[in-house]
Design a protein around this nucleic acid. Structure first.
Lengths: 225, 225
DNA sequence: AGATATGCTGAAATGAAGCTGAAAAATGAC
DNA sequence: GTCATTTTTCAGCTTCATTTCAGCATATCT
């Protein structure tokens, strides 16, 4: 679970990061709107904490830009400005919750829980075709057979299982699984897709990982002829 | 779109109902927690507006009971109690937003929009005629049939679907899809338009790609003769 | 009508994107 | 330390989306 904190008061940003890390979350901090928007666009975060008053580009503008590009991650907007107009503007810009400084850490965590909870009920198993992926054990099930996946294999397959029909470019898989700043190359994804295809075949799954050139990978259920 | 208002101040409940109906929503009002919970369990509402201080059963208790039964409808909690403890308790109980009375109607609608915005699966598509283009999967849908597009086909058709009636000169399509500095020639566009016309026909679409000499391509819905 | 420009199409060539097997390196358990 | 497993690297191979091209069709102009 990884958070992005966009907040120019470095002291507050760092104390937020510390708070989150104490709860076992990861967090990246950036200090201006333009950089923040770049980071958010990587689409590797589960929640964005966004200040309104920022150098470079206002939080509202950042939210609007992101939402216009169908950015789906929850945004928690944070600000000292309590005026009604600001709250309405923030929410209309695409924020999912508006919290006024100073706030209590319990309230912050209550909000975070709400936003993460709304991401859909906590499932512990994803299914597609005749196959399911156990999220706790990282095990692939198909009928009686099952197979343990390695960490990387699991991360990739979970991403695909979450949106089976959607195309995930290698670039995005790299950012999601290896991290945007890693020096992993696209061939890593190809190799792992190879591993996963073998494992799917080994348990007799009818799920296929299909490559669409330049657009990425997605899942399909094999059609019986 | 139907709302449930659980609020014991009848005056406020009715004015909320009126406000919502002015915006074209339907709303039912109930005045105590126990009845409210019964109504909510019908699971026919798109959003529940829930007061905290209620006769019969508190709003927090209602929310907790509902959430423990996997009640998924968004809950907007409404109250005069602004204390931190109350906000945290309300959110932890399962509310999705906590609004303090007195509130402005603009703020109320901003919240409602936030809560309704997140409903439904993440679908992102452009439609024209009887056909739609899924932007996540690069798939063309028409009735039951669907077809995946290649990267270039997808880029071109997305451009056309974004402004169906507008003419796009080949030169502009080249710049947009192949890039300004590419050495692609106009025949590439012609060839791809050919591919796309075949695919549109294959799924029975009534969308035509029409060429206007010198002006470019645009979309039209085929008129039945 | 004839000439010219523009758009359409099927088939073949090409090359970048993706695949694979094997080996090396890293990690972690014991 | 060993051994097993996972991850990374790499070079050669395959394949299919893209490109190329030649010829045909249709619109526009003189």
């Amino acid at each position: 679970m990884k958070f992005l904190i966009i907040e120019d008061e470095k002291l507050l940003a760092e104390s937020l990061k510390t708070l989150l890390e104490e709860k076992g979350y990861q967090a990246d901090t950036v200090y201006d709107g333009i950089t923040g928007e770049e980071y958010a666009k990587l689409d590797i975060y589960d929640l964005v904490i966004l200040d309104v008053l920022l150098p470079g580009r206002s939080g509202c503008q950042v939210a609007r830009n992101l939402r216009s590009r169908h950015f789906g991650t929850p945004i928690l907007m944070l600000t000292a400005r309590a005026a009604l107009e600001d709250r309405v503007e923030g929410l209309d810009a695409g924020a999912d919750y508006y919290l006024t400084k100073p706030f209590d850490s319990r309230e912050l965590f209550a909000c975070i829980n709400v936003l993460l909870r709304r991401q859909g009920p906590q499932v512990n198993e994803l299914s597609f075709g005749n196959t399911s992926l156990d999220l706790f054990s990282g095990t692939l099930f198909c009928g009686e057979k099952n197979l343990r996946l390695s960490a990387r294999e699991f991360d990739i397959l979970r991403l695909l299982f979450q949106n089976p029909e959607r195309n995930f470019p290698k670039e995005r898989i790299l950012a999601h699984v290896w991290g945007y700043d890693s020096n992993a190359v696209e061939n890593h994804v190809e190799v792992y897709v190879g591993f996963l295809r073998k494992k799917l075949a080994a348990i007799g799954s009818n799920v296929r990982i299909v490559a669409v050139r330049r657009l990425g990978y997605h899942l399909e259920v094999e059609q019986p002829c």
